[in-house]
Amino acid sequence: MKANRMNHKLIKQIISIFKIKKAAFGAIVILFFILVAILAPLIAPYSPSEMVSLPVQPPSWSHLFGTNTYGQDLFSRVVWGARLSLLVGVECGIITSIFSLIIGLSAGYFGGIIDDILTTITNIFLIIPGLPLIIVIAAYIAVKGVTPIVFVISITGWAWGARVFRSQMMTLRNRDFVKAAVVLGEHPIRIIFFEIFPNMLSLVAANFFGTMLYAVLTEASLEFIGLGNVNVVTWGTILYWAQNNQALMLGAWWWFIIPGLCIALLGVSLAMVNFAIDEITNPRLKRA
C-alpha cells in the first residue's frame, strides 16, 4: 500500500517534470543523444576511424559535418563519440551519487564523532580546487583511458552531494516515522535505506543530473588537454585532435564547433532537468 502510493507520487512527479517546458526540452535532448549513442552503428555512414574522403572538407551532403585532416568523416565520429561521452557522464553520475549518499547519509544519521570526521573530510574535498587536482592525478595515471577518467572525476566530485544529503538526512532524522522505526528496534541500515532514503529521491535525482553535467564538462576538458586516451572517439578527443592539428588556423570551423556544440547541448539539457527537479521540489523557486 505504502509502496504503491509512493510509486504513484513518483509517476506524478515525473509527469510534472515534462509539464515544465525547460525540462521537457532537456529530457528530449538527453533521450535523443541516448538514442544516437545506442544506434550509432546504424546511424553512422562510415567507420569513425577510417580515411574515407579528402582531408579537411567542409560539410556537404556526402559528409554532413565535413572531414578532418585524416580524411575521417566527422559526422560518424560525432555519432560514435556520443557513446563514450554519455557513458562517462552516466557512470560518474551513478558512482559519485553512491559515494555522496553513503558519506552524507551516515554523517547525517549517526551524528556525533562520525559526523564530525565525515563532515571534515567532505569540507576538505569541497574546498580543494577540483580541476587542478584532477589534472595532476590524471597526469600520474600511466594507462590513459575512459576508466581512469571516471575514477578521477568520481573520487573528487562527491563532496557537494554529500553535503546536500547530510543536511536533508538531518531534517528527516527527527521526523516521527524515523523515531518510531528506531523505537521498534529496526536496523540502522534498514532505516536509512528503506525508511528515509525513499523520501529524498527527488534530491538524489537532481544531484545525479548535476553531477552528470559536471562529469561531462570535466571529461571534455581532460580529453581536450590530452589526458584521456586520445585514440578513442569521444566529443572531447575530437576537440583534442582539432586543437592539435590547428583546425582553427585551417579555418576548419566544423571540426571544433560541432562536437563542442553537442557537449554544450547535452550540458544545457542536464542543467535544465536538474533545475526543473529543484523547482518542483522547492516551491519557493517556482513562484519566482
Partner: peptide
Amino acid sequence: KSIPYFWLALL
C-alpha cells in the same frame, strides 16, 4: 554555466 568554457574560448 553548462557549456564547456574552453569551447567558448575556441569559438
